[in-house]
C-alpha cells in the first residue's frame, strides 16, 4: 500500500514540473509584450527602445527562457509570484486572502453539495422509477440547464431585494454565505446526486445484495452496505469536485461581489495583469493535481483490487 502511495506521489512530480513550465510559458502566448504592458500600466507616456531594454534588464527578462523559468519557479516555491503590473503590490498579498475567502466559500458549499447529493442519490436509488425519483431527477435536469449567473441574479433579486432577507453582495457575516452557497449547491448537487444514484443502482444489481436479501438481512443494512461500495465512485468524484469548484466559483463571486479568487482574476484579465493570472493558474493547477493524487490514494485504500493492478 505504502509502495503504491509512494509511486503515485512520484508520478506527480514530473507532472507538476510540466504544469509549472506551461504556466510560465503562458505569459509568452500573449500578443502584447509583457514589458510594454508593465510600462503602460505604470503610466509611462512614451515607450522608447532604451526604456524597454532597461526595464527588461531590471526585471531579468533578457536572460534565456530556461533561466527565467528556474528563477520564477524558485521564487514561486517561496510564494513570491512577483508584483502586480497595475498596482505594484506583491501578488501573494492579494492572492493569499482571496484564496482564503474562496476556500471558505468552497468548503461550505462542498459540504452542502456532498450531503445533499448523498441523501438524494440514496433516496432516488431506493425509489427508482417511482414519482419521487422521477420528480427529483426532472427538477435537477431543469436546474442543471440553468445558467448559474442567471439563477444567482434571480435569487438575489427575490431574496435580497424583494424580501430583503439577505444581503445582496459582499462577505460580512453568515447570512452573506446563503445565496452564493445556494447557487453553487443547486448547480452541482444535480450532477453529483446522479453519479451516486447510478453507482448505487449498479451495486444493487450485484450478487451480494441478492445474497444478503436472501439471508433476510434488513433492507436498511443492505442499503448501508451498498452505500459503502457506491461511495468509492463518489469519493473519487468528490475529491475532484473541490478543485473544480475552486475554479468555477468565478461567476458566483462576480455576481455577489465576493472578495475571492474569481473576482480578482476577472479584474486581472480585464486589466491584463499577467503575474496575477499566472499565479492563479499555477495555484489552481497544483491544487488540482494534488487532489487528483489524493483521490487515487483514497480510492486504492478503499478498493484492494485497484492496488494489485499497479
Amino acid at each position: 500500500m505504502s509502495l503504491y502511495i509512494l509511486k503515485r506521489i512520484g508520478m506527480t512530480v514530473p507532472l507538476l514540473i510540466v504544469i509549472s513550465f506551461l504556466t510560465f510559458v503562458l505569459n509568452h502566448l500573449s500578443p502584447m509584450e509583457p514589458v510594454k504592458v508593465i510600462l503602460h500600466a505604470q503610466g509611462v507616456p512614451t515607450i522608447t527602445e532604451e526604456l524597454i531594454a532597461e526595464t527588461k534588464a531590471k526585471l531579468g527578462m533578457d536572460s534565456p527562457l530556461l533561466i527565467q523559468y528556474m528563477d520564477w519557479l524558485i521564487a514561486s516555491l517561496h510564494f513570491d509570484f512577483g508584483h502586480s503590473y497595475v498596482t505594484g503590490i506583491p501578488v501573494w498579498s492579494m492572492l493569499g486572502p482571496a484564496l482564503l475567502h474562496t476556500l471558505k466559500l468552497v468548503l461550505v458549499s462542498s459540504i452542502c453539495i456532498f450531503g445533499l447529493s448523498i441523501v438524494l442519490g440514496v433516496i432516488c436509488a431506493i425509489r427508482e422509477g417511482r414519482w419521487l425519483d422521477l420528480s427529483v431527477r426532472s427538477l435537477s435536469f431543469l436546474l442543471t440547464a440553468m445558467p448559474a449567473y442567471w439563477l444567482a441574479a434571480l435569487l438575489a433579486w427575490y431574496f435580497a431585494v424583494k424580501l430583503d432577507w439577505l444581503p445582496t453582495s459582499g462577505m460580512s457575516d453568515g447570512a452573506s454565505y446563503v445565496l452564493p452557497v445556494a447557487v453553487l449547491v443547486i448547480g452541482y448537487a444535480g450532477l453529483y446526486f446522479r453519479i451516486i444514484r447510478s453507482s448505487m443502482l449498479s451495486h444493487l444489481n450485484e450478487d451480494y445484495v441478492l445474497y444478503e436479501r436472501a439471508c433476510g438481512i434488513p433492507e436498511s443494512i443492505v442499503t448501508l452496505h451498498v452505500l459503502r461500495n457506491a461511495m468509492q465512485v463518489a469519493i473519487t468524484v468528490f475529491s475532484l469536485a473541490i478543485p473544480t469548484l475552486l475554479g468555477s466559483t468565478v461567476v458566483v463571486e462576480n455576481i455577489f461581489a465576493w472578495p475571492g479568487l474569481g473576482t480578482m482574476t476577472i479584474n486581472a484579465i480585464l486589466s491584463r495583469d499577467f503575474p496575477i493570472i499566472q499565479a492563479y493558474v499555477l495555484v489552481l493547477a497544483v491544487a488540482f493535481v494534488l487532489f487528483n493524487t489524493l483521490a487515487d490514494v483514497i480510492h486504492a485504500a478503499m478498493n484492494p483490487r485497484m492496488r494489485r493492478e499497479h
Binding site: T23, L26, S30, I277
Partner: peptide
C-alpha cells in the same frame, strides 16, 4: 492528454483568455 487534463478546464479557459485578451 494527461497534461492537458491536469489543468481544471475553467481555469485554463480563463488563463488563455487572460493572455490573448477578451
Amino acid at each position: 492528454c494527461d497534461i492537458m487534463l491536469s489543468f481544471p478546464g475553467y481555469v485554463m479557459t480563463l488563463a488563455v483568455v487572460g493572455m490573448l485578451g477578451p
